[in-house]
Amino acid sequence: MGLKEYIAKRIVYSIILIFAVLTVNFLIFAMMPGDPLRQYMARVELATTQEQYQMLREQLGLDKPLHQKYVEYLGRMLTWNFGKGMIGGGVDVTSQIMQRLPNTLILMGTSAVLSIIAGVLIGALVATKRGSWFDTTMVTGSLLTYSVPIFFIGWLMIFFFAVQLKWFPIGGVEPRIWGRNPPTSLIEFLAGRISCLVLPTITLFLFSVGGWILLSRACILETITEDYVVTAKAKGLRERTILYKHILKNASLPLITNVAMTFGFLISGAIITETLFTYNGMGLLIWDAMRGGPAPDLPTLQAIFYIISLCVIVANFIADLLYGIIDPRIKYR
């Protein structure tokens, strides 16, 4: 099977998978116990008669049969018409997502790129020094940062660098002083945004870089004793060339899979980190949709889960194509 046939086959599989995800996403919320309308009315202490209650159910479409709800739900999801959410005063869900998505992409993208690059490079170096004090120190440190709860790392960042040293803001997307004195230049704007990004970015970096170090170390240790490595050494190639051009390339397939999954889940944000730093991103939006209103904001949660699933499917599709480019031994079937 050629590359074009493989891509066409994968596209068909992806479309089927998208409809499967849409169905599961619909059933999760449709089969939830309780009546979301009654939950909302109870929390806001809204007293209505039975007739008024039935009228509200008809207006919201809650009285329709399950199959009709499903067809209308598919139409909304496929046309990206997510309706209005409960949080933010009934603001359109798409507007809520587009308002917070850039903040999450900046935060998660920066921390992901830094942790992947640093973790893979350090992991490769650690693998070549297996059994040394450097290897022991890095493995121990990686296990420590990877196992410590992320909220604890965030608390330490806030306590030392925001509360004690006052080097960075405690939280937020932009400095609070901008409410009274907005920035007057591009440099001032960038400096203010970067200062709010530093602590959450370092928190996410410290939490995730250990996993990348351990993964890349394990992948390289599996290939470092292969015959082509011995041959490259016999040819007199430099150790750095052998490591980063030959060993790392052939050990990169598991890394590509994890990179794809990392970027696939990028827009989901970091719920704990964004809540801790009150960073107005997708993670905080998910938290607000679950806990911030009188009742769970089901339209917002449905839309977010659908978009996350789409990104993961696309990321895996791209990873499958990259396998054959990185390793010519892989045949498309």
Rank of each mutant, 00 (worst) to 15 (best):
V126Q: 01
V126P: 00
V126H: 00
V126E: 00
V126I: 15
A127I: 07
A127V: 10
A127N: 07
T128D: 06
T128Q: 14
T128S: 13
T128K: 14
K129S: 08
K129F: 03
K129N: 12
K129P: 06
K129I: 11
R130P: 00
R130D: 02
R130L: 03
R130Y: 05
R130H: 11
R130A: 05
R130F: 04
G131Y: 07
G131R: 07
G131Q: 07
S132I: 14
S132F: 06
S132V: 12
S132E: 10
W133S: 13
W133F: 14
W133H: 11
W133K: 12
W133C: 05
W133I: 15
F134H: 00
F134E: 01
D135H: 05
D135C: 06
T136P: 00
T136Q: 13
T136A: 15
T137V: 12
T137H: 00
T137P: 00
M138W: 13
M138S: 08
M138P: 02
M138F: 15
V139Y: 06
V139L: 13
T140F: 14
T140Q: 04
T140S: 14
T140C: 07
G141V: 05
G141D: 01
G141A: 06
G141S: 04
S142K: 03
S142A: 11
S142G: 02
S142M: 02
S142Q: 01
L143D: 03
L143R: 06
L143H: 09
L143G: 09
L143A: 02
L144F: 15
L144E: 01
T145I: 13
T145Q: 02
T145V: 15
T145N: 06
T145W: 04
Y146T: 10
Y146S: 15
Y146R: 14
Y146D: 02
S147D: 04
S147K: 01
S147P: 00
S147A: 12
S147Y: 02
V148S: 05
V148M: 15
V148L: 15
V148F: 01
V148T: 11
P149W: 09
P149S: 09
P149V: 11
P149L: 13
P149F: 11
P149H: 06
I150L: 07
I150A: 04
I150P: 03
I150K: 01
I150R: 04
I150W: 10
I150G: 01
I150Q: 06
F151T: 03
F151G: 02
F151P: 00
F152E: 10
F152H: 05
F152T: 10
I153R: 03
I153W: 10
G154M: 03
G154Q: 00
W155S: 12
W155N: 14
L156A: 12
M157A: 11
M157R: 01
M157W: 01
M157Y: 06
M157C: 10
M157Q: 03
I158Q: 07
I158H: 04
I158Y: 05
I158N: 04
F159S: 13
F159Y: 14
F159L: 15
F159V: 15
F159R: 13
F160V: 15
F160H: 08
F160C: 11
F160T: 14
F161W: 12
A162Q: 07
A162P: 09
A162W: 09
A162G: 08
V163P: 08
V163F: 14
V163C: 07
V163N: 13
Q164K: 14
Q164P: 01
Q164S: 04
